[in-house]
Each structure stands twice: as structure tokens, then as C-alpha cells.
Design a protein around this nucleic acid. Structure first.
Lengths: 195, 195
DNA sequence: TCGATTGTCTAGCAGTGCTAGGATCGGGTC
DNA sequence: GACCCGATCCTAGCACTGCTAGACAATCGA
């Protein structure tokens, strides 16, 4: 039995290696550079090995997305916990926004995997993977309370999130000049959130 | 001379055909299906002909983006002109938002060409092509007046636009359920615009 | 009518995601 | 310890991608 267990461990370890390498390569050179050949070479296995772990490249992107969603949720919670304890809603929402945009800025490839690319994942449905639901939950925890009366907290969170997403993607794609990000965040928080 | 002129006309006509066909194919089957071979086959020329008009696939996407940006600007202006004449800012901003999201919804491939894909175009710079500048100008014309005092109209337009962009992309990518779009728009307009 | 130029196509390159089928290695059994 | 068999992995190849070199033909000016 212990032999099989060891093999299972090694397999799981290799799977982690694949995901981590794909992510690293994507952050270094963009997702276009993440080809099955390059990825296989980096993990020092042949191409078909990838397909014994994942159905295809899409599923590898999906795996990176799930990992990233968990980190995003953690980053958001970490950033908001301080202001949350101090009972300052304005500071909390500002901290959330900054943390979100910082994550998108510092992990562009991962952010793309979560929100732009097709990772074969279900969103906004019952069978949505847990990390994705939890990432939204992290936003909801912080934003739900500033929705204002008469406004559904989930819907408010969606709108606020969409705004942040728009800022993140347009800025990174060069559609918005990056200098005024802080001012834009302030405007968004002041107007959207009901304190 | 007239011979050369005729040839030039035919060339320009063929270029329009390429762009229109690329756009049509992209809307029908997605940009992934727009390969140089398929495109060449549809216009009934060989592949290299494409490269006598454009540097590569990227430039073809860029051409579709420019065409689309002009249409988006026109759509926005058309939608806002009525409420503008009536002097109703709230209705005007709502009309703009609906028109923008409707354009994204009805021309997903074109919208991607403008805002998601790499068409080799410069954004938010001096050498930004005129149609792109004009599309932003169309938004600015309508949104600048509801920025609120002390808020730069350009910056406000950027933020509002980013919010719409976030809603458009997240909805279409299945990240947001499409049912509540109207409610989201209402929330966005009520909160962001200063009337 | 001839030469040159312009225009177009065939064929091919290097790269992509993905897979069939053969080789090899190791564990379990006699 | 020797053997077999199954799991594991790799080589080689498929059909496709964007893009281009060079051959070919058609057309224009002299």
C-alpha cells in the first residue's frame, strides 16, 4: 500500500509543479508563451505527461485560476481586516479596492486566468468551484454593509466588483493612464459606497 | 491615370471586404475561428493577399476595432441625443449606459477587438487613432457634465466607462448573471452621476 | 510586339494543441 | 531470484496556426 501512496504523493507533487510552472511562465512571458512544449520542457517531462494530469491547456489555466482566486480572497481579507477592526467603513472599502487592484497589477497573468481567459470553469452557478465562490464572498463580506438601504448586497457587490475589474483591465491594457489610479479609486469609493 | 485609379478603388474595396469578412466571421464563430486561411477562402483570394493589405492578423483586428469604435461612438451619440434635447441628465446617462452595454452585447467580437484584443493600436496617447479618441469623446460629452464639482470630467468619464466595461465583460464572460443588468445600470447611474 | 512591373498563387517554414502506439521500468507473484 | 504484467512515459506524428519566399502570369508602357 505504501508504494501506491508514495506514487500518489509524487503524482500530486508533479501536478503542483505543472501549475506552478505554468503560472511562473505566464507571469514572466505572458500566457501566449505557455505552450505545452515549453511547459513540458520546464518540468522536465514530455508533453503527454501534462495530459495525464489535465484534459488540456484550458484545464491548466483553470487550475492557475483557482489557485489565484484563493490568493485574491486572502489578500482582500488581509487588507480589510485592520480597518474592519477599527470600524471604519470608508477605510475598509478603500483598502479592499487598493488590494484588489494591487493584486491585478502584481499578478496580471493570474488575474487573466481568473477573469479573462477560458479555464473551463463555471461562474455564478451552483457548480462554481469553491475558491471562486469564496473570492466573491470575500468581497461581499466587506462591501455588503455599504450597499445602502434598499439595495441588495450581492448586487451592489457585483457592481462594485465590476467597476474595479474595469479599472484593472483597462489600466493594464493601456486603455487608461496609470497615474490617476488612486484618484479613481477615491472617486469610486466615495460615490458608490454608502457609509 | 484612370486605370490606376480604378485599381486603387478595387484595392480599397478589397480591403473593406477583408475587414468586413473578418468581422462577420468573428461575430459568427469567435475570433479564434478567424484564421488567415479561412479569411482568405471567404474573400476568395489566397492567404498572401491579406498581407499585401495588412502587416498581419493583428492589424486586421485593429481595423475592425477602428470601425467598431466609430460605430460605438455613433450609437452612444444617437442614444443620448433625445434625452439631451429634453435636458434630462438622468435619462441621458441611463440611455448612454444602456446603449453602451447593448453595443457590447450585440457586437461581442467587435467589442473585444476594441477593448480586449491586441490590435496593435495606441490608446490614451497622442498618436491614438481618431476613432478611438472620438469614442471616448462621445462618452465625455455626455458624462462630463455629471462629474460633480471638484471632479475632473475626464477622470470621471474614465471611471464611469471602466464600470460599464467591467459590467460588459463580466456579464458576457458568464461571470455575472445577465438578468439583473438593468438594476445594475440603475445603481451605477444613481450613485456615480451627480445630477 | 517586346520588356518590365505589378499582382497573385503555390508551397513551405516553424510553431501550436493534442494523441496513438511502442518502449521501458517496476511491483507482485511463483 | 526469475518472471510476467501493468502502469508509466516518450517518440513520432496529426491537423492546424501565422507568415513568407519564390515561381508564375497578367497587364501596362514603349
Amino acid at each position: 500500500m505504501s508504494v501506491q501512496e508514495r506514487k500518489q504523493r509524487e503524482r500530486a507533487e508533479r501536478e503542483r509543479l505543472i501549475v506552478a510552472t505554468a503560472r511562473e511562465l505566464a507571469e514572466q512571458q505572458g500566457w501566449d508563451a505557455v505552450t505545452t512544449r515549453r511547459l513540458a520542457e520546464r518540468i522536465e517531462y514530455s508533453q503527454p505527461v501534462l495530459y495525464s494530469h489535465f484534459r488540456g491547456k484550458r484545464e491548466i489555466i483553470g487550475a492557475v485560476a483557482l489557485e489565484g482566486a484563493a490568493e485574491l480572497a486572502a489578500a482582500v481579507r488581509a487588507a480589510t481586516s485592520q480597518a474592519s477592526a477599527a470600524g471604519d467603513p470608508h477605510a475598509r472599502v478603500t483598502a479592499l479596492s487598493r488590494a484588489y487592484l494591487a493584486f491585478a497589477d502584481q499578478n496580471p497573468a493570474v488575474y487573466d486566468a481568473i477573469f479573462q481567459l477560458d479555464g473551463g470553469l463555471a461562474y455564478a452557478q451552483e457548480d462554481t468551484p469553491e475558491p471562486l465562490k469564496d473570492a466573491f464572498a470575500a468581497l461581499l463580506e466587506c462591501l455588503g454593509e455599504v450597499a445602502g438601504k434598499g439595495v441588495h448586497s450581492g448586487l451592489f457587490t457585483e457592481v462594485f466588483w465590476a467597476s474595479l475589474h474595469g479599472l484593472a483591465t483597462l489600466t493594464r491594457a493601456g486603455r487608461l493612464p496609470p497615474e490617476d489610479t488612486e484618484t479613481r479609486v477615491a472617486l469610486l469609493v466615495d460615490r458608490l459606497a454608502v457609509l
